[in-house]
Design a binder for these strands. Structure first.
Length: 262
DNA sequence: AATATGCTCAACCGCAGGATT
DNA sequence: GAATCCTGCGGTTGAGCATAT
């Protein structure tokens, strides 16, 4: 048995919504809500529209908290970051952008950011990392995906215990526009940031100073998720403490990363 | 001025999956 | 457990507008 259509397409109006239809839908929803059923809503509201069409019109355009207009650089950053981590899960990405819908984000990606993203990837592939930090040290270079998705080249200083993570400044001046932290330096604390389905995490695999811990928890609204033996260092000869903190939102996570900048 | 081409974005489509019967 | 209903999602389309030729 095939699936029943959600409405009779020969009896409903399709295409762009008129201002009158918008008013009818808006007034009805403000007075009555959806009552948990979009399918029967158009009939009750007096609209010759499919329920799905009404839902889409409300969610993507008529809702009072919708933000119209161009995307900011900060919003672009969040989209690029999350896309590189979770792919085209537009509803998840939109949930991190106040007032933006999944449709908005998807359209913005397809028309603007996709090109930037691909250009950045090509640019990255065509540029070798150049060390301009300190030529007195011997560096091991290593290219990897970073918090912002694609553009991090990391290097470690061979003759000391200091680890430096560096964004290639040549790339930030090239074809793509979104801002990147210029230099992220982590000394003593080896922090790994990650965006996962259930939140934003910072793992400190070799401890963290109490002042910095307080800073993250109090100023950036992080929560402690785990503290204990690092499972990655389970051998008896090495016993390291792992502290995992979770950010409540992308803005705090973003700021905490930028807190490492010089 | 006319036509072609490219871009934007609202709207539609079909599917997946949870809820209900 | 099966059938059906309904919502939410991501991919795609196409009308309208802007720009180039």
């Amino acid at each position: 048995m095939g699936r029943a259509p959600c409405c009779d397409k020969t009896k409903v109006k399709r295409g762009p919504w008129s201002p009158d239809e918008d008013n009818i839908l808006k007034n009805y929803l403000e007075k009555n809500g959806t009552a948990g059923n979009w399918i029967s809503l158009p009939q009750k509201a007096g609209l010759r529209r499919c329920g799905k069409s009404c839902r889409l019109r409300w969610l993507n355009y008529l809702r009072p908290d919708i933000k119209h207009g161009g995307f900011t650089g900060e919003e672009d950053n969040i989209i690029l970051t999350l896309y590189s981590q979770i792919g085209s899960r537009w509803s998840v990405i939109a949930a991190n952008l106040h007032g933006r819908t999944d449709n908005d984000v998807k359209n913005h990606w397809n028309t603007k950011l996709k090109k930037k993203f691909l250009a950045a990837q090509n640019s990255y592939n065509n540029n070798s990392f150049t060390n301009n930090i300190d030529s007195s040290h011997d560096f091991n270079h290593n290219c990897s995906r970073n918090y912002y998705g694609i553009l991090e080249a990391t290097c470690s200083i061979v003759d000391s215990n200091t680890f430096t993570s560096h964004m290639d400044p040549n790339l930030t001046n090239s074809s793509f526009q979104f801002p990147l932290p210029s230099l992220m330096e982590i000394q003593e604390n080896d922090a790994i940031s990650s965006v996962q389905e259930d939140g934003y995490f910072m793992d400190f695999s070799s401890g963290i100073s109490s002042s910095y811990y307080d800073n993250l928890v109090n100023d950036f609204d992080f929560q402690e998720k785990f503290i204990g033996s690092d499972p990655n260092y389970s051998s008896s000869s090495s016993n390291s403490t792992l502290i995992q903190l979770q950010a409540n939102n992308i803005a705090d996570f973003d700021q905490s990363i930028k807190g490492f900048e010089n």
